[in-house]
Amino acid sequence: MFEFPVLIGDIGGTNARFAIVAEKGAKPTLLSHEATADHPDPSSAIRSSLQKGGDRAPPPRSAILAIAGRVDGPEVQLTNAHWKVGGERIAGDFDLTTAVVVNDYVPVAAGAAEIEPHDLTSVGPCPPIPGGARVVLGPGTGFGAAALVPYSAHLAIISTEAGHTDIGPADAFEEKVWHALERVEDRITVETVLSGPGLARLHAAVAHVRTGQPHDKIDPAAVTEAGLAASDPHAVEALGLFARLLGRVCGDLALTFLATSGVYIGGGIAPRIVKVLQESGFRQAFEKKAPFVGMMKQIPTSVITVHDPAFNGLAALASEGRKFVYHGQVWHRPE
Rank of each mutant, 00 (worst) to 15 (best):
V325K: 15
A316H: 05
D252R: 08
K323P: 00
L239A: 04
K275N: 15
S302T: 00
T305S: 11
K297H: 11
F292Y: 14
G268Y: 03
V249G: 00
V274K: 12
K275V: 09
C250Q: 05
V306K: 12
L314A: 03
G240R: 01
A316I: 02
I269Y: 06
K297A: 14
R244A: 13
L255Q: 13
P300H: 08
V274W: 01
F286N: 08
E320N: 12
H327V: 15
G240Y: 00
Q284T: 08
I304V: 14
R322H: 12
C250V: 01
F292S: 11
R248Q: 07
G281L: 05
K275G: 14
T305H: 07
D252E: 10
K323I: 09
V293I: 13
G251P: 06
A270E: 00
V276N: 13
D308Q: 07
V293M: 09
Q284D: 13
S261W: 08
I265P: 11
K297V: 02
V276A: 13
R283L: 14
V274H: 03
D252A: 11
G251S: 06
Q278F: 02
F286H: 01
N312I: 06
V303H: 02
S280R: 03
S302Y: 07
G321N: 12
A259T: 03
G281N: 08
L258S: 15
V303K: 07
G251M: 06
G313S: 04
A270F: 03
F292W: 12
G281V: 02
V274T: 15
K288Q: 13
F292G: 05
A318F: 03
Y326E: 05
L253E: 11
F286I: 06
K275P: 10
I269L: 13
I304R: 05
G281F: 02
G281K: 03
K288R: 10
F286T: 03
R272I: 04
A270D: 03
E279S: 15
F324N: 01
R248I: 03
G251D: 08
F286K: 04
V306Q: 10
A316L: 10
G262C: 08
K288H: 13
Q284P: 00
R248L: 07
V293Q: 14
M296Y: 07
F242I: 00
F324V: 11
V276P: 10
A285N: 06
A285I: 01
G247T: 02
Q278C: 14
I269T: 06
V263L: 11
N312G: 12
A259D: 09
R322F: 07
T260R: 13
M295D: 10
G262E: 09
Q298L: 13
F311N: 06
F324G: 03
A254G: 13
A243W: 00
F242M: 05
G268P: 02
K288G: 03
A315H: 02
I265V: 14
R244Q: 14
K297R: 14
P271G: 13
G281Q: 08
G266E: 05
Q298H: 09
T305V: 15
D308E: 13
L277K: 12
A285P: 00
S319K: 04
E279M: 11
V303G: 02
G247V: 02
L239R: 07
S280P: 12
